[in-house]
Computed example of a mutant assay.
Amino acid sequence: MTGNDSRRHSIMQMHLHRYTYYHQLILLILAVGLLVALPTQAATLTAEQAYQKGKILHFQDRFEEAEPYLLQAGESGNASAYYLIGDGVDGGYINILAAMSTKEYTFMKLAAENGHLLAMLRLVYYKSRASQSEKERWRNKLRQVLKPHAQSGNPLALSFLSGVALSEEDDGENFEYAVKAAYAGHPRSQYYIASEYENGEGWFFLPGSREKEVAKLYEASARGGYHDAIWYVGVTKVKAGETEKGMQILNVLIDKGDASKISTLGLMLSDLPDFDEEWVYDDKILGSTYMRASAIAMSDSDDTFQFFNEEAISLLTAEENQQVDQLTEEYLRTHTVYRQDGLDEFEYTVDNLHTALERWGGNAIE
Rank of each mutant, 00 (worst) to 15 (best):
Y183K: 01
A184Y: 02
A184T: 02
H186W: 06
P187K: 10
S189W: 07
S189P: 04
Q190P: 00
Q190Y: 05
Q190V: 02
I193C: 03
I193E: 00
S195V: 14
S195Q: 13
E198K: 15
E198P: 13
N199K: 01
G200Y: 03
G200C: 03
E201T: 07
E201L: 10
W203S: 11
W203I: 13
F205K: 08
L206K: 05
P207A: 01
G208I: 00
G208P: 00
G208K: 01
S209H: 11
K212M: 02
K212R: 02
E213K: 08
V214M: 05
V214S: 04
V214E: 07
L217A: 09
Y218T: 08
E219K: 06
E219N: 03
A220T: 13
A220V: 12
S221C: 03
A222F: 00
A222L: 00
A222P: 06
R223V: 09
R223C: 03
H227R: 12
H227V: 15
D228L: 05
D228I: 01
W231T: 12
W231Y: 11
Y232L: 06
V233H: 01
G234E: 07
G234L: 08
V235N: 09
T236D: 05
T236V: 06
K237W: 08
K239E: 10
K239A: 07
K239F: 06
A240H: 02
A240G: 00
G241Q: 00
G241I: 05
T243K: 15
T243C: 15
T243D: 14
M247Q: 10
M247S: 11
Q248L: 15
I249V: 12
I249P: 14
L250Y: 03
N251A: 10
V252F: 08
L253I: 06
I254F: 13
I254K: 12
D255T: 13
D255R: 13
K256F: 02
G257F: 13
D258A: 14
D258T: 12
A259S: 10
S260L: 14
S260A: 12
K261F: 10
I262C: 13
I262A: 09
S263D: 09
T264V: 10
L265Y: 12
L265W: 10
L265R: 11
G266M: 00
L267W: 15
D274P: 14
F275P: 05
F275D: 05
D276T: 08
E278W: 13
W279E: 04
Y281E: 07
Y281R: 08
D282M: 12
I285K: 06
L286G: 14
Y290N: 00
Y290T: 00
M291L: 12
M291G: 09
A293K: 11
A293Y: 11
A293S: 13
A295C: 15
A295D: 15
A295S: 15
A297W: 06
M298C: 07
M298P: 10
M298W: 05
D302N: 15
D303C: 03
D303T: 04
T304M: 14
Q306G: 00
F307N: 04
F308T: 01
F308W: 02
F308A: 05
E311A: 02
E311H: 02
A312Y: 01
I313A: 05
S314G: 07
L316N: 04
A318I: 04
E319G: 12
E320R: 11
E320Q: 14
Q322I: 11
Q322E: 10
D325S: 13
D325H: 12
L327I: 09
L327Q: 14
L327K: 11
L327W: 09
T328N: 05
